[in-house]
Amino acid sequence: MISINELRRNFGPIVAVNGVSFNVGKGEVLGLLGPNGAGKSTLMKMLACFQKPDSGTATICGYDIIENPVEVRKSIGYLAENVPLYNEMTVGDFLNFICDAREIKGKNRKQALDRIVPMCSVESVYHQTIDTLSKGYKRRVGLAQTLIHDPDVLILDEPTDGLDPNQKHEVRDLINNMSKDKCIIVSTHILEEVEAVCSRTIIIAKGEILVDSTPEKLKKEHQCGLDEIFRKITRTKAA
């Protein structure tokens, strides 16, 4: 469902993503791991058609990110790193705006809202202004926005960052429940999350793929926990 071919992006002299290629299929939950500045977010922004690659391309659900960005955006749900929202809007108005933009109308809109509002547990704050919400609720609203059109592909940039343990657990359950019939890419710093939700993991540093494996295989090969594996691999690269 996602096919990435030699994606490259520089910011001046800094190489953010350096010729990354991989494929992700339906039913896979790919954990994108890497130290800060490894290029995870840049890669995700390029997949969401927010940033243009310097070279290379990718196709999502058969649509090219450079030639067909609007179709790509229709088929994905993208949760950006800091969950940007329109703070002056109420949760209800915001979700209705997303429905407007995604052309979800009439009966479909009602169904979508009836499904997503309890799923992301935002009923209690539905009429509240987003500005007044806690970080956890803001992230849930962000997730609701990502999932409202029931996309086939999900790109989630640190979806559990800043959540309390209960909320983290809820989000992981949510991802696990959806994983069967979707293709999901999750970036995270939290290694236990990879074990909890990911069927495959890619470790990147300095814009290059260092490891492409499953969490179980990695643990077996290195005979230690993911924490240690992560340190070993990314430090070798840094050196």
Partner: peptide, 14 residues
Amino acid sequence: RIGSIELLLTLPIT
């Protein structure tokens, strides 16, 4: 400044 442009331009909007 607040980054909502990332939300807006990752919706199917040109």
